[in-house]
């Protein structure tokens, strides 16, 4: 196999940490629009929004990753993820603190995450990558876009 496969990642901030997702899975970045709540659902599922006629669920990634919830304001953004590979793609909106950068990482520079000290389910983490001084947690877009994983605690 080729060693130098580079992939671009969109990074965003969450409680001071920087996370990255495969940019090919990002459909768009939006300001949060009014959410309609769903009855009897866990707190991290904020509800659904209308995105140009399609109803998509909104997940607060802070709460999903068991971090302190943040009050929403007009700066709150959602990253809309969409699984490009599936025939019937699932779409989900993730509430994040702020969108940061787009970085390129080669497969080689991604290291496996150590198995301790992290409240995030390990299945969501693809690995760690560093950019200068910063350490970026890369999320596994496959599990993020898997209904059973994302909506199940």
């Amino acid at each position: 196999m080729m060693n130098e496969i580079e992939q671009e990642y969109l990074t965003f901030l969450l409680d001071g940490e920087e996370f990255g997702v495969d940019i090919l899975c990002v459909q768009e970045i939006r300001v949060l629009s009014p959410i309609t709540t769903l009855p009897n659902k866990p707190d991290y599922i904020k509800g659904v929004i209308n995105l140009r006629g399609v109803i998509i669920p909104i997940v607060d990634l802070r709460e999903r990753f068991a971090k302190q919830a943040l009050k929403y304001n007009d700066q709150t953004v959602i990253v809309i993820l969409r699984d490009q590979t599936a025939i019937k793609p699932m779409v989900v909106g993730l509430v994040v603190d702020a969108v940061s950068e787009v970085y390129k990482f080669s497969d080689k520079s991604i290291r496996e995450a150590p198995d301790f000290g992290n409240k995030i389910d390990r299945c969501f983490i693809q690995g760690l990558a560093s950019h200068g001084e910063k350490l970026i947690i890369l999320l596994n877009s496959q599990t993020l876009l898997n209904q059973d994983e994302l909506y199940h605690l």
């Binding site: 309609t36 009855p39 659902k41 659904v48 109803i55 998509i56 699932m90 209904q147 909506y151």
Partner: peptide, 18 residues
């Protein structure tokens, strides 16, 4: 509109609309 396209079945809810 279907809720199940992107989310699961919700008890007591048959769908959504805009």
């Amino acid at each position: 509109k279907s809720l199940q396209d992107n989310y699961q079945q919700v008890d007591g809810i048959s769908g959504a609309t805009i």
